[in-house]
Design a protein around this nucleic acid. Structure first.
Length: 290
DNA sequence: CACTTGACCTGTCCGC
DNA sequence: TGCGGACAGGTCAAGT
């Protein structure tokens, strides 16, 4: 579910809400969601204070004084929701929440803090995970080793984008954009949105892209991720931020989930097709196949 | 080797 | 209302 803007929105919320808090309890019911042993939990999590919350690609790193970190990947339907006891969660409330009373049947892990507040890790489809891992050894995990650069980072140029994408010359551009080892953080929503912004058909082969295409794509990716971040990300179905609130980007989306609507640039009807197994939205006039 | 497909899960929506 | 099938924002292993 969450891509870079959603994970970053959660990170910003957690940084404000849980840094400095001491963990006093941890409950988990589903092994895949939290594979550490009870012994690990006792030694590296319980009694520990949270020192910071960072992000790499779509993963979150919640660091603890013990020298261990809680690594979290939300995959498709994961949520990290903080309950300080003052927020009233009401499922279906239009402005606030998709989250009802917590815990609910999708709750996999509950962390309790010294002040009585709690952090819930919910994950309907059970694809996501949370695990304790030594902070110093994060770079040695395959998952983090493979991650490409963050497209919003300062030093990330259009030449970097071009060079990295060109390693996959035989592929269509959209799956390459979503390949986390090429750049990290773009998923299905922002791949479609970025390609519309750059006027590139999602099935265009990498080998056919020119410098000008990479310049537009680079600008488009950064513009769209920043715009979404400023609206708290996209809520399609499950996504909520650390306080249970929806994101608003989809109100501004140009093609994603807008099939059969008019392209905002040329009024041509937006199409939806399946590409590399994923729902793909584009304007057949602005984004011509090459 | 590079690239594509299926599996992992549950819930929802759509057509019959 | 019930049932089968397709689909959902991610990643990895297995297959071609």
């Amino acid at each position: 579910m969450p891509e870079l803007p959603e994970v970053e929105t959660i990170r910003i919320g957690l940084e404000r809400l849980i840094v400095g808090k001491r963990v006093v309890s941890a409950e988990h019911d589903y092994l895949k969601s939290f594979p550490n042993s009870e012994d690990d939990v006792k030694r590296f999590l319980l009694g520990q204070t949270i020192t910071d919350v960072t992000r790499r690609g779509k993963a979150l790193i919640i660091s603890l004084k013990s020298g261990y970190s809680l690594l979290v990947h939300l995959k498709m339907t994961g949520q990290l929701v903080y309950d300080g006891g003052r927020v009233h969660f009401g499922a279906g409330h239009p402005t606030s929440s998709l989250v009802g009373e917590l815990p609910d049947k999708s709750t996999r892990v509950i962390l309790g803090f010294e002040d009585g507040s709690k952090l819930y890790f919910n994950d309907q489809r059970k694809f996501g995970w949370m695990r304790l891992w030594p902070t110093k050894l994060i770079d040695e995990l395959e998952f983090f080793k493979r991650l490409g650069p963050d497209p919003l980072s300062d030093g990330f140029s259009w030449q970097d984008l071009a060079r990295r994408m060109q390693r996959r010359s035989g592929s269509a551009v959209k799956p390459v954009l979503m390949d986390q080892s090429v750049i990290s953080g773009v998923g299905n929503i922002y791949a479609d949105e970025s390609l519309w912004g750059a006027k590139i058909h999602p099935a265009t082969l990498i080998a056919k892209l020119k410098d000008q295409d990479y310049r537009r794509l680079h600008a488009s990716i950064r513009e769209i991720l920043s715009l979404s971040l400023s609206h708290g990300g996209s809520t399609d179905r499950n996504y909520v931020d650390a306080e249970g609130k929806r994101g608003n980007y989809l109100k501004f989306a140009r093609v994603f989930r807008r099939d059969n609507e008019a392209c905002p640039r040329c009024r041509t009807e937006i199409k939806k097709v399946k590409l590399a197994g994923r729902g793909t939205h584009f304007c057949p006039n602005c984004q011509k196949a090459k």
